[in-house]
Amino acid sequence: MRLTDFWQRMADHFGTAYADSFARDHVMSDLGGRTVNEALAAGWSAKEVWRVVCAVMNVPDEKR
């Protein structure tokens, strides 16, 4: 998954403003106690991070 696709999916699910806030502020244990932004900066792939976001936030299957 490209990073641009990841951010588009985040915006589609959360809305543009909240996607940015969520990625910056929401710490998830499934990301090793990191935020989305921290996980991406630490080298996690966009696909891995999206899978965690989907699982933690109960993203509907049709948006995965």
Rank of each mutant, 00 (worst) to 15 (best):
M1H: 11
M1A: 10
M1N: 04
M1C: 06
R2H: 10
R2A: 04
L3F: 08
L3K: 01
L3H: 03
T4G: 08
T4W: 14
T4P: 09
D5H: 14
D5T: 15
D5Q: 14
D5G: 08
D5K: 15
D5L: 13
F6M: 00
F6E: 00
F6W: 03
F6D: 00
F6N: 00
Q8L: 05
Q8E: 03
Q8W: 12
R9T: 00
R9K: 14
M10D: 02
M10C: 11
M10V: 04
A11R: 13
A11K: 13
A11D: 12
D12C: 07
D12K: 10
H13C: 03
F14R: 02
F14V: 02
G15P: 03
G15V: 03
G15L: 02
T16Y: 10
T16V: 13
T16C: 05
Y18H: 10
Y18E: 03
A19M: 01
A19S: 10
D20V: 13
D20R: 15
D20F: 12
S21V: 03
S21L: 05
F22W: 14
F22N: 07
F22D: 01
F22K: 11
A23L: 00
A23K: 00
R24Q: 11
R24A: 09
R24F: 04
D25N: 12
D25C: 08
D25A: 09
D25Q: 11
H26Q: 13
V27Q: 07
V27P: 01
M28R: 15
S29V: 09
S29N: 11
S29Q: 12
D30C: 10
D30G: 13
L31E: 02
L31W: 04
G32S: 03
G32T: 08
G32W: 09
G33L: 07
G33H: 07
R34D: 05
R34E: 08
R34C: 14
R34F: 09
T35C: 13
T35P: 10
V36C: 07
V36K: 06
N37Y: 08
N37V: 05
N37G: 10
E38T: 00
E38G: 05
E38C: 01
E38F: 02
A39Y: 10
A39G: 08
A39L: 09
A41R: 10
A41K: 11
A42I: 04
A42G: 05
A42R: 04
G43K: 04
W44I: 00
W44H: 12
W44R: 12
W44P: 01
W44K: 10
W44F: 13
S45Y: 01
A46W: 01
A46P: 03
A46M: 00
K47F: 14
E48T: 11
E48A: 15
E48N: 14
E48D: 14
E48Q: 15
E48Y: 07
W50F: 13
V52Q: 02
V52R: 04
V53K: 00
V53G: 02
V53C: 03
C54W: 04
C54H: 06
C54Y: 13
A55P: 01
V56F: 05
V56Y: 07
V56N: 08
V56L: 04
M57C: 15
M57P: 06
M57T: 13
N58A: 11
N58V: 01
V59I: 15
D61K: 13
D61C: 08
D61W: 12
K63D: 09
K63E: 11
R64G: 07
